[in-house]
Amino acid sequence: MTARLQGKTALVTGSTSNIGQAIAEVFAAEGAHVIVSGRSQERGVRVVEGIRAAGGRADFVRADLDGSAAASRALADEARRTLGGRLDILVNNAGIYPPATTGTTDEETFDRVYAVNVKAPFFLTAAIAPAMAAAGGGAIVNLGSWIARLGIPVGALYSSTKGAVETLTRAWAAEFGPSGVRVNAVSPGVIVPPAAPGEEPHPGEVMMHGTPAGAVGTPDAVAYAALWLAGDEAAFVHGAVVDVDGGRTGTAVIAR
């Protein structure tokens, strides 16, 4: 690794598995002291132990980001306390995706998905960005989604929350950028394990036919995009949404 985040501190929400875990591991490998956060103490401790075993710095802070301002503020405060008072990078990754259609989504589910996917990052950013600005700057990376801009039959609720996150990315870039806090987003495509031989493929894997990549992506692919946006190499990047989707939303090729 190249120590691109040496001396930096970072909070990655929803980092006890999958994309969030990959981001935490890559950030730590590049020199950052990372706060791993999520609801599961067991999984969080396991991720931290793995990072430390690889020579990185990490601590776990449990958080159930239910959308309340209080829960977001509590995580911000505990992360800063654990990191010695300074937080340079925030990754708003935590989210939930109930695979329901519009007609089968009840009001309780609707409110819960918006609480976790939109309200929680909104109030966490509100609790962290001003302090970043006061300390001289920082970087915020949000997680959008390819289905915020390419409609699919199942996922209207989730995709609408990610559309909100991508809009907030641009609004926050305008709001906090002049104070030295860069805000950008990564929009992942289909990130699922490929089917084993003889196994039925995931519908998302089938949807990658006819794309330049021709296959699903890995959590690491998203993590390295987040690393670039969080680091000094992206110092002139504000309000961008970087597609890491194998070309799914922007291109088409002849499927073979």
Rank of each mutant, 00 (worst) to 15 (best):
D77N: 09
A131T: 14
V47R: 08
T161I: 06
A69R: 14
T16E: 13
E25K: 14
V186R: 11
T101K: 14
G84R: 01
V165S: 06
P201M: 04
T251F: 13
A215I: 10
K162F: 00
E205T: 08
G198N: 09
G155Q: 09
V190K: 01
G44V: 06
D106P: 10
F176D: 07
D220V: 14
L124G: 00
V253M: 12
L75G: 01
L87V: 09
G84Y: 02
G246M: 08
P188C: 12
A63K: 03
P99C: 06
A135H: 11
T167Y: 02
V34W: 03
I51S: 00
D66M: 02
V186S: 08
A134Y: 07
M132W: 02
G20M: 03
G250A: 15
G103R: 07
H209N: 14
A127M: 02
A195K: 14
A135T: 04
T218N: 07
N184Y: 09
G231C: 08
T102M: 13
E49I: 08
A135Y: 06
A54L: 06
N18A: 12
E42H: 11
G55Q: 13
N184E: 08
I128D: 02
G250W: 08
V116Y: 10
R248V: 10
G20H: 09
T102I: 15
Y224F: 15
A74S: 15
N142V: 03
G50A: 09
L150D: 14
G84C: 07
G138V: 02
N142W: 02
L157N: 01
R170V: 01
A115Q: 07
A148I: 04
G67E: 04
R86W: 03
T249Y: 01
V190M: 07
V190C: 02
N18H: 15
G214K: 06
G250H: 13
A164W: 08
R39W: 09
P98L: 01
S160E: 05
N142F: 09
A164S: 12
V118R: 00
S72R: 03
A139S: 13
T16C: 14
G44Q: 04
A135G: 11
P219N: 10
G20A: 05
Y97L: 06
R43S: 13
V216K: 05
G138A: 01
A69Q: 11
D232M: 01
F176E: 04
G20R: 01
S159G: 15
L227A: 03
Y224T: 05
L124M: 06
F27Y: 15
E78P: 06
V165L: 06
A76V: 11
A71C: 09
Q41N: 12
G20P: 08
D64R: 04
R57H: 15
A133F: 05
G20K: 08
F123H: 04
G44A: 13
A196L: 15
G231F: 07
K8C: 10
T16A: 12
G103V: 03
P201G: 10
V216P: 02
T2F: 13
R43F: 12
A226I: 04
V154F: 04
E107M: 13
L90P: 00
R62N: 12
F176W: 14
V118C: 05
R80F: 12
I35A: 07
D77P: 04
D232V: 01
R149P: 10
R43Y: 09
